[in-house]
């Protein structure tokens, strides 16, 4: 790591770009369309979405560092298996930690913790970035992509929980007076297909906005 420090400042402009790119312009979820697989099923409520976001960020960042450190010793032909084994090991750690400290949430996430292994974001970053870059840059890249993923999850979960159950983090936010006046929770929001539609709309807004700003 000390080599990296000499050549590039730790938080130079390039490094900052690596970290911040995925938050907006190269967002893994809505621009590169990675990692939709496992994660969108858990955005009914904010809390599991937040935990999932943090777990994926941790796995991506650490996985990136490990792969970047080993990148010259991994044989080309079997690299996918090597990557999978490293990621699987990290996910087992995350799973055990969740079971120990956040048992309720880990029950809600059920198989989706395990599915972090095949989350395309992680494999994508390992293949595209960590195999060709130094550990520190890879770490930032992992963090950036993890956050980009997490905040998308949180946005989706925010709307679903607010409109679907009228709560945020389990606390009621829509006043009782609304319900008395005839307001009802939108049950459709809780059902799985709505996620796809919400993401579709977010992509629409994002594309329209980025096109405007690039003109």
């Amino acid at each position: 790591m000390s080599n990296t420090v000499k050549k590039e400042p730790l938080f130079g402009p390039k490094m900052r770009k690596v970290l911040s790119g995925p938050l907006n312009r190269d967002n893994p979820v809505i621009v590169q369309v990675l990692g939709i697989c496992s994660a969108l099923a858990i955005t009914v409520k904010l809390e599991p979405a937040l935990v999932m976001g943090i777990s994926v960020t941790a796995v991506t960042a650490v996985g990136n560092v490990v792969i970047a450190a080993l990148r010259s010793t991994i044989p080309q032909r079997i690299r996918i298996i090597v990557q999978l084994v490293i990621v699987a090991m990290l996910v087992i750690l995350v799973d055990q930690i969740l079971k120990a400290f956040a048992y309720e949430v880990s029950k809600q996430l059920s198989v989706f913790v395990g599915l972090i292994i095949t989350n395309c974001i992680i494999m994508g970053r390992l293949e595209a970035f960590a195999m060709a870059n130094k550990p520190w840059a890879s770490f930032l890249d992992g963090l950036g992509n993890g956050f980009g993923y997490a905040w998308m999850l949180i946005v989706v979960a925010f709307f679903r929980e607010l409109l679907g159950s009228g709560t945020l983090f389990g606390h009621q936010v829509i006043p009782d007076a609304f319900y008395a006046a005839g307001y009802q929770n939108n049950g459709l929001m809780i059902l799985p297909p709505m996620v796809l539609i919400i993401i579709g709309l977010i992509i629409w807004i994002h594309r329209a906005a980025t096109r405007d700003s690039s003109k």
Binding site: I30, V33, L191, P192, P193, M194, V195, L196, I197, I199, G200, L201, I203, W204, I205, R207, A208, R211
Partner: peptide, 20 residues
């Protein structure tokens, strides 16, 4: 702005509702 990905997601969502 909806072309490509956006519309694909929405179609998938509608198909999901149909499958329900």
């Amino acid at each position: 702005s909806l072309q490509g990905l956006g519309i694909t997601f929405i179609i998938a969502g509608l198909m999901g509702i149909a499958f329900m």
